[in-house]
Design a protein around this nucleic acid. Sequence first.
DNA 1: CTACAGTGAGACGCGAACGTCTCACATGGG
DNA 2: CCCATGTGAGACGTTCGCGTCTCACTGTAG
Lengths: 189, 189
Amino acid sequence: MGYACLMAVDRDHVLRAAAALLTRKSTATMDEVAKAAGISRATLHRHFAGRDALVRALESLGIAECEAALDTARPGEGPAAEAVRRLVRAIEPSAALLAFLYTENQLFEGEQQNAGWTRIDDRISALFRRGQESGEFRIDLTPAWLTEALYGLLASGAWAVLEGRVAAKDFTFMITELLLGGALRREEP
Amino acid sequence: MGYACLMAVDRDHVLRAAAALLTRKSTATMDEVAKAAGISRATLHRHFAGRDALVRALESLGIAECEAALDTARPGEGPAAEAVRRLVRAIEPSAALLAFLYTENQLFEGEQQNAGWTRIDDRISALFRRGQESGEFRIDLTPAWLTEALYGLLASGAWAVLEGRVAAKDFTFMITELLLGGALRREEP
DNA sequence: CTACAGTGAGACGCGAACGTCTCACATGGG
DNA sequence: CCCATGTGAGACGTTCGCGTCTCACTGTAG
């Protein structure tokens, strides 16, 4: 007895390794995942019933990280623009995992998606709506679209960093600046 | 003899059907693709040696449509912002196919990608660079990132429309407005 | 009418990945 | 010391999609 905590640590470690690998190669084999995690395929199967269960676990991890990021970003406090900056900064470490899940979700077509995503969608949409109501954000772009665009930019950003097309240190800046300010040069106030 | 043209028409029709299906379900079987195109699997194999060849053909189609869109958008003429609007409008019909190819490209990791993409990247980057040099666009977002972000927004937009989260008629507007103007409300000039 | 190109339906073997199983080994606790 | 638990290695059968093949049918050109 007393191994429960060790198990959890191991499981989390496997999950991280799987996320890191699948982010780069979404079609990786169970064998490759096991190898990447430094364990055997048998042990991998002892932790996760199958590939499906593994992806579901990764989904749960992604949802948990998103909600944690939302919690630390305090999207209800201060100017909405600042809240968006805090959110992107908080979510940056999870961006690659999110990018993987974002594309993987297209495979779940038909089945209803995990309720966690709609919870997250709602919280982010609420942030954009708050910014609109306070007059910070323009009202001709729907909160749903801004939320979707945020996901898309996070995914593109993570992917571009992974491929070396943009510098990792610019990730947050480029996403927030484009999302909030756009490409047009702003007139000085 | 004399069937060459008919063959080409058929091939194009199959390609369109495959694009429409794979856009929605990227893991569709060759059998499903054939069924979607209204032909048998044997005939599908007569047109495209294998699944790989089919995806390559779709890639060529996507590249051709992108370059055609770039041609009609005349990215070198007029204000850069207007050129971007024209480009997005011209590329909209191909957005779903592009979204599919954009995610599919992650599978080509390792192998060098089709030269067509770098050609397109260069033309779009040049457009953003032109906007920066003319003073229209801000210079703290690199053309490479703006190009990448455009791809991401096109993919997110196509996907959101496909899922019914945003209206299809708003596609171009939402992408161009977000890309150019961002979410922040602009001060009246 | 005859010949033939194109097609659809289906059978067949192949290979990859999966999920399950067994067995031997090691490590830590009683 | 002995036992038990977790692990690694590997074998095994199954499933699934792919690619190839054959064969019968159809429509059209000669």
